[in-house]
Amino acid sequence: MSRSLARAAAVVDRRVTGLSPQVLAELVAELGPRWQTCRDARLAGRPRRRAVGAGARHRLVFVDRLLATLVHLRHGVTYDVLACWFGVSRSTITRAIGEVRPLLAERGCTVEDGIRLHTLADVVAYLGAREQVGLLDATEVRVRRPAAHKAGRARFVSGKARANTVKALVITDAGGRLLSCGHTLPGSIHDLTQVRQAGLVELLAPIPGATLLADAGYQGLSAQTAGAVRTPRPARRKNQLPVPPALAAAHEAERRAHSAQRIRVEHGISHLKNWRALSRHLGRRDHLDNMPRAVAGLVSSQERAPRPDQPRRPPKALPAGTAG
């Protein structure tokens, strides 16, 4: 396939990159100058034997580098397949994705009015300023098992997933739209430990308007955050004393109401997992530090992008003899 046909297929069909042409144009306009600046700074930071601008031209322009990175993140396509698709070597694709992926991770998640949330502190401040409710959860990405006879081989074994995983912290708004995804840790880390190491407890203390809903895995966090993190009431155990049916029904209704509000974060995580690079990662585990942030920024940009106006369907004709 020629490079022009590959570029046209990736831009026109949203199924290839998961992004609309409008979002792709914004990415090119935003990241192109930044990529060129980083490249010039890298070349200027070492002794040169050629003049600036000399040497062979890039066989893979920035637009193709961006599209190759998006296809890799969206479908988990190997570097060899991308190299055949764009007509370059595997090392060129590896270098291109390694340059573009950190730029995507630095964009942050897009919210209304063009505001970008880059850090967890930005997310907490955003929720507190608008007195909105956020949804907190964690997702696990399967990774390759570390080599045998190496220290810390069991660190990535998740007791919940029963596999080698890396855990990422996810925060969405009440509608399930992504606000943050990152702070990756090995899968054996408990959810509470991940939140504490991320500094969420200290960030929620000075901002009274921020509220987060979490599942039962975060029980105990409410007391540490003065009620800023709300978890469901514990389920009744079989060995507890019986209570009146009215109290039991109220207890169960409260748990269901909390679950109905919190389920939106699962929808947000499902949008992340549509990008195959976060379903199962076959590359180096140290790349997972910026990969969830890059995908979350892309998903949030697509969620906030205006949708094209759909043509209105004509009203159905009323049956004969029916009053209009």
Rank of each mutant, 00 (worst) to 15 (best):
M1F: 02
R3Y: 01
A6V: 11
A6G: 11
A9Y: 06
V11R: 14
R15Y: 04
L19H: 02
V28A: 11
L31K: 05
L31N: 08
G32M: 05
P33I: 13
R34C: 07
C38H: 14
C38G: 14
L43I: 04
R46C: 05
A56V: 09
A56Y: 10
L60K: 05
V61L: 12
A68T: 10
A68N: 07
L70W: 02
L70N: 08
H75I: 06
Y79T: 14
Y79A: 12
L82T: 02
L82N: 01
W85S: 15
W85K: 13
W85V: 15
G87W: 06
G87S: 09
V88T: 14
S89W: 14
T92S: 15
G98M: 01
L103W: 11
A105W: 03
R107S: 07
V111P: 03
D113A: 13
G114S: 04
G114Y: 03
V123A: 05
A125I: 08
A125V: 04
R130D: 11
E131I: 09
Q132K: 15
D137V: 02
V141K: 05
R142A: 14
R144Q: 15
P146R: 01
A147M: 11
K150E: 14
R155C: 13
V157N: 07
S158A: 09
G159H: 10
N164E: 04
T165K: 03
T172M: 05
G175H: 11
L178K: 11
L178E: 08
C181A: 13
G182H: 08
H183L: 03
L185C: 14
S188I: 00
S188G: 02
H190F: 00
L192M: 07
Q197N: 14
A198V: 01
L203Q: 13
P208L: 05
G209D: 04
A210F: 03
Y218Q: 00
Q219I: 09
G220W: 04
G220A: 07
L221Q: 00
L221R: 00
A223M: 05
Q224Y: 00
A226H: 15
P232I: 01
P232S: 03
P232W: 06
P234A: 04
A235D: 10
R236L: 10
R237D: 08
P244N: 13
L247T: 09
L247R: 15
A249L: 11
A249E: 13
A253E: 12
A257Y: 08
H258L: 06
S259R: 13
Q261K: 15
I263G: 10
H271Y: 12
H281N: 04
L282K: 07
G283C: 02
G283T: 04
H287N: 08
P292T: 02
R293E: 12
A294G: 06
V295F: 03
V295A: 08
V299T: 07
Q302T: 05
E303N: 14
P306V: 05
P308L: 09
D309T: 14
P311E: 06
R312A: 14
R312D: 13
P315K: 07
K316F: 05
A317H: 12
A317V: 15
P319N: 07
T322H: 13
A323C: 07
